[in-house]
C-alpha cells in the first residue's frame, strides 16, 4: 500500500517536473528580455535537480543547485545587469552567424543525448545506480570514487579551471 503510494507520487512528481522543465527551456530561448531568460534557466536547473533527487542522487542534485542555479546564473544575471538592455532588445530577431552555429551545436548535442538514451551504454560500462537503500552514503560514495578511480580526470579538470581563471585575469588586465 505505502509503496504503491510512493511510486505513484514519484511518477506524479516526475511528470510535473519534466513538463515544467521543458516549458522553462522553451521559454528560456524565446524570451526577449535576457533577465527573464536567466530566470527560466534557474527554473530549468531546479527542475533538473528534482529529477536527480528522483534518481536517488541527492549529492548531484544539490551541487546542481549550488553551482549552476546559484553561482553561475547569478554571475550571468550580474553581467546582464551591467549591459545596456535597450541595444540587446532592439537587435531582436535578426539573423547572425552566432545563431546559426548555436543552432547546429544544439542539434548536435540533442543527437548526442538521443543516442545516449537509445544505446543503453555508450561507453560499454554501466555506472552503479543508487536506490532508496544506499542513498544515505551518497556523498561518501561520490567522494571515494572521485579521489580514487577518477583522481586523474579530477586533477586535470582543476588545472583547467586554474588556467581559465588566469586567462580571465589576464583579459581583464589588458590595456585596450
Amino acid at each position: 500500500m505505502a509503496e504503491n503510494i510512493g511510486t505513484l507520487f514519484q511518477w506524479l512528481i516526475f511528470l510535473g517536473v519534466a513538463f515544467i522543465s521543458i516549458l522553462a527551456s522553451l521559454l528560456l530561448v524565446t524570451r526577449k528580455n535576457p533577465i527573464h531568460s536567466a530566470l527560466f534557466l534557474v527554473l530549468n536547473f531546479l527542475c533538473v535537480a528534482v529529477l536527480y533527487i528522483l534518481l536517488y542522487s541527492q549529492f548531484i542534485a544539490i551541487i546542481q543547485v549550488v553551482v549552476y542555479a546559484g553561482a553561475i546564473v547569478m554571475l550571468i544575471v550580474f553581467v546582464i545587469m551591467l549591459l545596456d538592455l535597450e541595444v540587446e532588445l532592439r537587435s531582436g530577431l535578426k539573423f547572425s552567424y552566432t545563431k546559426l552555429i548555436g543552432g547546429f551545436l544544439a542539434l548536435f548535442f540533442f543527437l548526442g543525448i538521443f543516442y545516449a538514451v537509445v544505446a543503453k551504454s555508450p561507453t560499454g560500462k554501466i555506472g552503479s545506480s543508487y536506490t532508496s537503500e544506499n542513498i544515505t552514503n551518497n556523498v561518501k560514495a561520490v567522494g571515494e570514487v572521485l579521489f580514487t578511480q577518477y583522481l586523474f580526470p579530477f586533477e586535470i579538470v582543476s588545472i583547467l579551471l586554474v588556467v581559465a581563471m588566469v586567462g580571465a585575469v589576464i583579459l581583464s588586465k589588458k590595456r585596450a
Binding site: L39, F59, I63, V65, N138
Partner: peptide
C-alpha cells in the same frame, strides 16, 4: 545526508 549543502544551495537561490 546533504543537510549542509542544502543550506548553501537555498541560500544561493535566496540571493536572487
Amino acid at each position: 545526508d546533504i543537510g549542509l549543502l542544502y543550506i548553501f544551495g537555498l541560500a544561493s537561490i535566496g540571493e536572487f
